[in-house]
């Protein structure tokens, strides 16, 4: 069973739809026991970092999520919440990745919205994906590049398109909305 973390962030339904299009069953849940016993966990999210972290703290998920031992995939805000700190509402995050989340400097349109390709890609999530492939982004904050960055993209500045540390994987883009390339990346995760 694939568990999708339920919290006060949107976009959960479309993640579940994408997982089911690939032939996997999933369950949207915030039950710690279910999260700990799942085969894989997806940590999605569109929303605001401060209120999302407040919700995770209130429900105790802030302590559960970093302890998960099976493969975890953070998506969009999910990636940012796995970092150390976000400039959005000056929020302490989960600290799985050694990177901070910053606001794009306002020299071009914000949010970074639409399809963008990669500067670099590596790792298991990107099997059969090339750096010229495009994926869909919607975000105003970005994770800086760190040693855990596995894919980079550039919009105003170079930033982490994807990150990995041990069993924790994350993408800033939305694989569930990124047509066939997104399906490949999601399938790569589900087959880890």
């Amino acid at each position: 069973m694939i568990a999708i973390v339920k919290y006060n962030a949107g976009n959960i339904r479309s993640v579940q739809n994408a997982v089911s299009r690939l032939g996997f069953e999933s369950r949207i849940t915030d039950d710690p026991a279910e999260l700990m016993s799942a085969e894989k966990v997806i940590f999605p999210g569109v929303g605001e970092a401060g209120s999302a972290m407040a919700y995770l703290r209130k429900s105790g998920l802030d302590r559960i999520i970093p302890e998960i031992k099976v493969p975890v995939l953070g998506i969009c805000l999910g990636l940012q919440l796995l970092c150390r700190h976000s400039e959005e509402s000056d929020t302490e995050c989960l600290g799985v990745f050694d990177a901070d989340v910053k606001l794009f400097p306002p020299v071009d349109k914000i949010p970074h919205m639409g399809w963008n390709d990669f500067i670099t890609v590596k790792g298991k999530l990107f099997k059969n994906v090339s750096k010229d492939d495009n994926v869909y982004y919607v975000h105003s904050y970005y994770a800086e590049i760190s040693s855990q960055t596995t894919a980079t993209c550039e919009y105003i500045v170079p930033f982490s398109a994807a990150m990995n540390r041990n069993n924790f994987h994350a993408t800033q883009f939305h694989p569930e909305k990124s047509a066939l390339v997104g399906e490949t990346i999601l399938r790569n995760f589900l087959q880890l």
Partner: peptide
């Protein structure tokens, strides 16, 4: 649409309040 389409989509028409939006977002609109 949300179940079958793998790209983002927008919906509109007759939205007058937050409740109208909630129904559509919950149904899977981006």
């Amino acid at each position: 649409i949300a179940a079958e389409i793998n790209i983002p989509f927008t919906v509109g028409g007759g939205i007058n309040n937050v409740d109208d939006v909630a129904v559509l977002i919950k149904a899977g609109a981006d």
